[in-house]
Design a protein around this nucleic acid. Sequence first.
DNA 1: ATGAAAGCGCTAACAA
DNA 2: TTGTTAGCGCTTTCAT
Lengths: 336, 336
Amino acid sequence: MAVTIKDIAKLANVSITTVSRVINNKSEGVSEETRNRILQLVKELGYQPNAIARGLVTKKTKTIGLIIPDISNPFFPDLARGVEDSAHIYGYNVFLCNTDDNLEKESEYINALKEKYVDGIIFTSSSIPKHEHIMELVKSGIPIVIMDRRVDSEDIYGVFLDNYEGGYIATKHLIDLGHKKIGCITGPLYTKSAKERLEGYKKALVENGMDVDERLIFEGDYKINSGIIGTEKLLGNNENITAIFACNDLMAYGAYKTIRSYGYKIPDDISIVGFDDIQLSQILEPQLTTIKQPAYDMGLTAARMLIKLVEGKKLKKKIINFKPQLIIRQSTKNIG
Amino acid sequence: MAVTIKDIAKLANVSITTVSRVINNKSEGVSEETRNRILQLVKELGYQPNAIARGLVTKKTKTIGLIIPDISNPFFPDLARGVEDSAHIYGYNVFLCNTDDNLEKESEYINALKEKYVDGIIFTSSSIPKHEHIMELVKSGIPIVIMDRRVDSEDIYGVFLDNYEGGYIATKHLIDLGHKKIGCITGPLYTKSAKERLEGYKKALVENGMDVDERLIFEGDYKINSGIIGTEKLLGNNENITAIFACNDLMAYGAYKTIRSYGYKIPDDISIVGFDDIQLSQILEPQLTTIKQPAYDMGLTAARMLIKLVEGKKLKKKIINFKPQLIIRQSTKNIG
DNA sequence: ATGAAAGCGCTAACAA
DNA sequence: TTGTTAGCGCTTTCAT
């Protein structure tokens, strides 16, 4: 059996209340002397507070849940690291939950986290069309910060990226480079992020007097394979495309593969812009020009917001929007 | 306030004991009728057991800790996913902890996890020379499974990869391809994994009648940059190297960069073998030949072992060794 | 088949 | 400055 507050109390000849006081640094009303005596015993016996017992009475567990689709998807490790770093700074631990964007798993995790009395939840769900779970969570009163996936509701806290702007600057970059026929491989269009990136693409086109040609748009699913297939389609329909905007880096990698298998060169024959800027985009040859989404910072920020929320502090903003940033590397070329 | 067992008891006109019984399926000794009445109320009121309260009395939390150096390191997401999937199947949640191989952070996490009464810990520490923490944990009686980093002690449970064998087959592959001058960029040599891979390299050389030339060995640190520098050194000393064994994929990527900047071609001028087989190694151009370390399966296995341990089941083996596997792709070439 | 009571380790009024 | 007491929500003997 581990050492308890009771053991310390007995040995120090004080009540458990007093011990509790010094352990929690509520030491007003504890004499310097007893205080030291207790601290000494704590050290000697290697006393560690039982967080479970504490949680039972305080209803706070210093624990948060992080619900994401899949930590194996290269976008999420950085995000998770940001969340965890932030949590660690404030003395919280984080539960990692992978849902695969599966409604049932989401439910299971939400229930488990509630039963374990996490203080709050960071919720990311990139491709679920409905957001029942989110609203349910919000109503249940547990603090929650939404990431990545915009939800339209007044009483929601969230950390988002301006995907519309991202799609716009990606396409604008290509237009500025003199490209006229620009293909687009989108994410799954029932997600807001994918829709917004596509809208940004369209806006850039229209704003520059170009037509939106549906034959140049292919709906992917953010996975490598759809980048491969999408590019085959795009290359196959004889539209003489000179550039592709892949709505995430993984699909851009797929595009690389197809383009090479067709014997074309990047960026000489085809320019490519990706989205996310995951770590390996700088290692690819040629290095991928892409739209950077600051995953680590977003994770850091989300956790910080959540913890402030949990601790009852005022937040300046309910929503924090991150700006995407164009990172020009070697996969795009001026053909002006 | 959430619904408690007490509320249910009152409404069902039974004692809390009875409610507890049906909730925990210890239903022998509960009549079908009261059982149904209770279940009905549970559903109606949306009762959720309070895991904290339960944990306080049972000393079990259905929670495990996963301590790794850094989830952003591409080797770990797959491992973490394996751990989490396994845990989820058995009804456990997992705390993610990133230590950066920093002793102090390791200590902090271990303490926090103990205070939160996790049922067990999976511990990975790729580059800490000492293992005080591990032994401390083992002594403290909390079930623990070590991963990746071999520890010499009888009473330890672990999941490991045979790094020696891995280093051997990587080098052997190169030798079989006719290479005579094979450089090696190692991991940090105070880690066992790095040492073993290097030993495997040496064994293959010796076994094939070749000399071990220290000038062909460069000590890296498993990060991209040391792959870059190591390759510069190796290429710079005029030894006419025709192949490099990079002891992890990240360093192999670094080697790619340097080799290209020297104007050499892979695999025509230099062949490369990596280690790990992280996801992006198949996307690189040319695709990387490497030694596959089954991270996901290792995570799956470690969590399964740990949970069996926690639940007092017998384990057939205390140590499970995974075999590395040579994945031949496009970065190695026969120059026989 | 069911219930009463103790207690897990701690915090938080309230007293003294 | 310190202690007494109740109680968080649950499981678990031990009775009945």
